[in-house]
Simulated scan of single mutants.
Amino acid sequence: MTSAWNPSPGDDVIDQLAGIAPGSHLDAVRRHRLQARAQAQQSFLALLAPRAPLSSHWPLNERLAVAAFVAGLHQQPQVQRFYRDALATQASLALGKAIDAEVAQGLASGPYGQYPRGLLSAENQAGPVYAVGAQSRAVLGERLSAGLAHAHLLAFHPRDAQATHLQGLLDAGWSETDIVVLSQLVSFLAFQIRVVAGLRLLQAHPAPSTAAQQPTAEESAA
């Protein structure tokens, strides 16, 4: 492990991951949605940097392991590095290497799955079914291995999710509360990663200024 994982409540993690400087154009854009900005930060803190005892029995090091796995699957470099570094502060080197191995094994494109018979059936797409490798499973244990499998299912096979998958989590030792938190975490990470990717795209390709978009008097008269 390296230094302790201790994100400051006053820092906005999406701004950090997107490289948004205070006072910049994108900072001003985000401040137009202050409530949404604050809620995203509070979700991050509640799930991955709690200031109070966790509301479930799912320990922080395993949450960060799932976060590093999901971020790795989405292949957004800044987010992937952020959660992988965070995991290194809370977990053994062996666990970190196991997560890296499972990211490499679980990479896919998706989304895959089957719709109920009907118009949407034309969009059915078969895809790889993920399972934790035997070597990693020996490090991760049955409980965390089941959690990674569920996270991969939600990321790449969301329309294939069935009650049997939830039963698999229960059989591996997950409580109903922890299953809800796991699903919330995967959903939050997907949201966070999309926002960061979009903001970085805007940074790389800023929109023309408002003045440049306004037609000239001659163009208006034409």
Rank of each mutant, 00 (worst) to 15 (best):
S55D: 06
G118W: 04
P50R: 13
G110V: 10
P50A: 09
G96V: 10
G110K: 12
S109Y: 09
R84M: 10
L54R: 13
A126V: 02
E62V: 00
L73I: 08
P59H: 01
P53G: 11
V66L: 11
A68D: 06
E62F: 03
P59T: 04
G113K: 07
L95H: 00
D85G: 08
S92W: 05
A52R: 13
P50Y: 10
A104T: 12
S121W: 01
N61F: 07
A94D: 15
S56V: 10
A122R: 15
S56Q: 08
D100Q: 01
N124E: 08
L119A: 09
A71D: 07
G96L: 04
E62C: 00
P128M: 10
V70R: 02
R117Y: 11
A86I: 12
A88P: 02
G127M: 04
R81G: 09
P128H: 01
R51K: 13
E62K: 07
P77A: 09
P111E: 05
P50G: 11
T89H: 13
L64S: 07
G127W: 05
A86M: 01
R84E: 03
E123L: 15
Q75Y: 07
N124H: 12
Q76P: 01
D100M: 01
P53K: 03
L107Y: 03
D85H: 08
S121R: 12
D100P: 00
S56Y: 05
A88H: 04
A98P: 02
V66M: 14
